[in-house]
Write a protein that binds this DNA or RNA. Structure first.
Lengths: 212, 212
DNA sequence: AACTGTGAAGCTGTTCACAGCG
DNA sequence: CGCTGTGAACAGCTTCACAGTT
């Protein structure tokens, strides 16, 4: 089991590697990866150790091999599905984001309470249509999705989390700026934009960052 | 200077406190705050120590006092302004998000390259209109904004970062899934949704989390 | 010479544990 | 009693430093 921080960085590395590869490169050095991840070369090498990837002192790491190794470490071999609840601006934005995903992870279905949105086909969701939330459990079970994404307003977030939980998802990505409580065997990751903005605002002020 | 993690938690605490207050409460215990922040009571008390807040053994912390203290620690006394670049779905979602902000932080202006969006008035932005990016430097300087939010596609993110940088912002909240490089005295916070999703997907699989 | 792989050291943030208090 | 405030112990991650490799 890979530590959370490492998983995050591996995800970053991979995206960068794809980009490098597309640009025609075949190898990278640890310090290249360090640059984009905001870490050090030593840290990158540690991460490589964690997933058992190795490189050569002269050439660095071979991109194809590395991407493969990261995939073996992070991806479900047979693919993985997520459902998105909340088809507002944020939900739509995410569909666009994730649809460029060449990974083994796809959005299987979209749900929303708004009758006007139901039946609408959603970009990025394999031409699927937007369902009423009543269908959540059925769709999750049928599709075998194990990840839920919450992009509904705070007021509805807990309720949606409960639905997802009883539908059987194992992980939740929560965008509502509120703490949702679910069974402890479900992994919850919060993206709290308000918090991030307040952090930036704080550090943008006066705080001089040390330059070496 | 408060550590990054602490700033994040303080932001969370405050939001929860506002909610408690609205519900008619006057006091909280450290363990209440621990619950919503996913930490321990000891950690909450440490955080309180960091900002010099104190409570009483019998009543806990007084909400009004605490909110005030957090404000003194995090907020710019005279308010702070941010500009948002990229008025797509994500940008619009953020405007809605942040417009409920009762804090001292507001979105002063929105920019987008799309001529169809220019001149359009944007919800949540004080009735302001969407500007062409050419105006960025001028608007930033005039409004005194010191935070920039990047919600443009990856391909344009670095360019926007450069504009923001030379316009003089001191902090950037970057939603593009790519590492932007700017002068080291600018604080950059990345919100990498793809990474978060991949994390959730990873931990949703097989990984049994310890229950106490 | 420049990079990888890694034991060991170092840090930073977290938690323990307990004195003090209302 | 149950909670706060805090020195001290702890844990996990990060970085150092250097041997090994090509």
């Amino acid at each position: 089991m890979i530590p959370e921080r490492v998983v995050g960085r591996l995800s970053q590395y991979r995206r960068f590697l794809m980009r490098l590869k597309a640009a025609g490169n075949t190898h990278v050095y640890s310090h290249n990866l360090a640059e984009i991840s905001g870490g050090t070369a030593a840290q990158v090498r540690r991460d490589m150790m964690t997933i058992g990837a190795t490189g050569s002192p002269t050439k660095g790491y071979e991109i194809d091999v590395l991407v493969d190794r990261i995939g073996q470490s992070l991806d479900a071999p047979s693919g993985q599905k997520a459902v998105l609840v909340g088809a507002g601006n944020l939900g739509k934005a995410l569909l666009h984001f994730f649809s460029e995903g060449r990974t083994k992870l796809s959005i299987a279905a979209v749900f929303d309470n708004d009758p006007a949105k139901q039946g609408q086909s959603m970009y990025g969701c394999d031409g699927c249509i937007c369902h009423h939330i009543d269908k959540l459990e059925a769709v999750v079970k049928e599709s075998g999705a194990d990840v839920g994404i919450i992009t509904v307003p705070s007021s509805a977030a807990q309720e949606v989390a409960d639905c997802l939980s009883s539908a059987g998802v194992k992980g939740i990505l929560n965008f509502a700026p509120i703490t949702i409580t679910v069974d402890s065997n479900i992994y919850v990751e919060d993206i709290d934009m308000t918090m991030s903005l307040e952090k930036v605002a704080y550090f943008a002020r006066g705080q001089v960052v040390e330059s070496v």
